[in-house]
Amino acid sequence: MNFTVHADARPADTIPAGVRVLVLTGELDHGSAPRLQQALDEMYTDNCRHLIVDVTGLAFCDSTGISVFLGARRTLSVRDGSIALAGLNPRIERIFRLTGLARAFPTYPTAEDARAAIPTP
């Protein structure tokens, strides 16, 4: 299954400034993780502080993908920002629980819930 990463298609004025939503689908692995890293690097140059990753459509995630999530967590914490994961299916939830990462990332049922949890300036 191909991996895709794209920004939330909703109109920009419905998403608060500094907040970005990335929607991932398919299989995130050794081969596809560099594409997620590239999307993140583009967001950092675009003044992103709060990142929501919608993983509802993510079918697979290996330790390479986990490394990218942890790197984003580190980068955003330096900016006094945040990263949240939304829509974890049972498979992804299990991987995050086994790796202990469920405690490192706030998780929400939907991207909308994650957005509501970001404090408004």
Partner: peptide, 17 residues
């Protein structure tokens, strides 16, 4: 377990899990 503070190097530990 390398823990969440370490970005890489969790493959072998994960296999054991």
């Amino acid at each position: 377990d390398p823990g969440a503070g370490k970005l890489r190097g969790r493959g072998l530990w994960l296999m054991g899990q």
